[in-house]
């Protein structure tokens, strides 16, 4: 975002890109880290890993969107 010239047109495109990719980022965050938590809970038998993984995935996805588009 920094190297490109900032025009209203570029800004609008970035915003549309960001807004459309938000749901898939959050969904894949849940799938990746919730899936990791599920595997961990199958291995250790501790059920709490699944919700922990899901919440972690959502948090990371929100952070990723913030890093990519929100700064």
């Amino acid at each position: 975002m920094s190297e490109q010239k900032r025009t209203p047109e570029n800004d609008g495109r970035d915003f549309a890109n960001a807004a459309w990719s938000v749901p898939s980022y959050i969904l894949s965050g849940i799938l990746v880290w919730g899936g990791a938590g599920w595997l961990l809970s199958r291995w250790t038998g501790v059920y709490a890993f699944i919700p922990i993984g899901v919440i972690l995935g959502v948090g990371l996805a929100v952070y990723l969107v913030y890093v990519k588009y929100g700064r």
Binding site: S21, S24, Y25, L27, S28, G29, L31, V32, W33, G57, L60, A61, L64
Partner: peptide, 11 residues
Amino acid sequence: PIEFLSNMIIA
């Protein structure tokens, strides 16, 4: 991993 899954499969 989140970025890869999001762009390659979920999108």
